[in-house]
């Protein structure tokens, strides 16, 4: 009896107290709150589930009625088809996207932090005019300058090359703006102390400023990574050769070849967004904080 009774009371306590605590306060309003939020979550997740599910379905299950969200029979056929297609050098496209993204992120982090440092901690003639100029370039949408920018690349002879994707993206007005805001918060006394100790100006940037900018660099780096990895319009204009395509361009090209095979296009989409989703789950704290702080996309 005692042996039997004890777990029962325990059970009663654990199941009893938890709902009682909230149960008293669960109002119709709170039920509605969770209902609305759940509907929103379904709206947000269904396309992802549909994409994943379809990519693992067989060609016959795709058109089955009623539709299945989770495939009845998981098959890797669509992924294997993409991997084994000699006309789709997937490794090449991944490499192109990685080269372009990595180059731009590295250069933007370097130029933005250096210029941000100078704007934040140095006094010189024309500083405000220059900074206003940077803010002004932030206001010009890319679509307005893309035509002449393409003409610039034609003159430089770097159209249809990865260089043409990288070179115009090496600096970022937004990056300089963001880094300046952050570096202004670093006390100038630290810099003065380093100067008295005989540090060079570049040494101050490299040894004093950079080590303190971890979170700001991570935030800017993630934004730049997402923007470059997902960019479509600029590669669409610049790249014409198949081997120089980046992943988003590969995706629309693949869709134009296999538009009626949803399993294939969805598998290709999964392969393109997978790296960025993984990175998002690792770095989402920085992304969310960065947007909350700067408000920019």
């Amino acid at each position: 009896m005692a042996v039997l009774g004890k777990p029962q009371t325990l059970l009663k306590e654990t199941t009893g107290t938890a709902p009682a605590k909230t149960g008293l306060h669960v109002t119709l309003g709170q039920v509605l709150v969770y209902l609305v939020l759940t509907v929103g979550i379904i709206y947000t997740l269904i396309p992802f589930l549909w994409m994943l599910g379809t990519s693992f379905k067989s060609a016959t299950e795709i058109v089955r009625m009623p539709p299945t969200i989770i495939p009845e029979k998981f098959t890797l056929n669509s992924y294997l088809t993409i991997f084994n297609d000699p006309r789709v050098p997937l490794g090449r496209f991944y490499m192109n996207s990685v080269i372009v993204t990595f180059s731009i992120v590295t250069m933007v982090l370097f130029t933005s932090s250096l210029a941000g440092f100078v704007f934040a901690k140095y006094q010189f003639f024309g500083k405000n005019v220059l900074f206003t100029l940077i803010l002004a370039t932030m206001m010009i949408p890319f679509q307005v300058t893309m035509i002449p920018l393409y003409l610039v690349l034609v003159r430089l002879g770097i159209t249809d090359s990865l260089l043409g994707l990288i070179v115009p993206g090496a600096t970022s007005a937004f990056g300089i703006f963001m880094m300046r805001q952050f570096i202004e918060g670093i006390p100038s006394e630290l810099i003065d102390a380093a100067r008295i100790d005989g540090a060079s100006e570049f040494g101050i940037y490299y040894r004093i400023i950079l080590p303190q900018m971890g979170s700001a660099l991570a935030t800017l780096g993630i934004f730049q990574f997402m923007g470059t990895w997902n960019d479509y319009l600029w590669p669409l204009i610049v790249i014409t050769t198949t081997e120089k395509r980046t992943l988003p361009i590969m995706l629309t090209w693949y869709n134009s070849q296999h538009g009626s095979r949803a399993d294939l296009t969805m598998a290709a989409s999964v392969l393109v967004i997978l790296p960025i989703v993984v990175i998002y789950f690792f770095f989402q704290r920085w992304i969310v904080r960065g947007i909350a702080l700067t408000g920019f996309k």
Partner: peptide, 19 residues
Amino acid sequence: IYFLPTVTSAVAVSLVWGV
């Protein structure tokens, strides 16, 4: 979860919704 779609490539978004 609500933020997840914003990191997704617009091309993939177009294809998924196209399907």
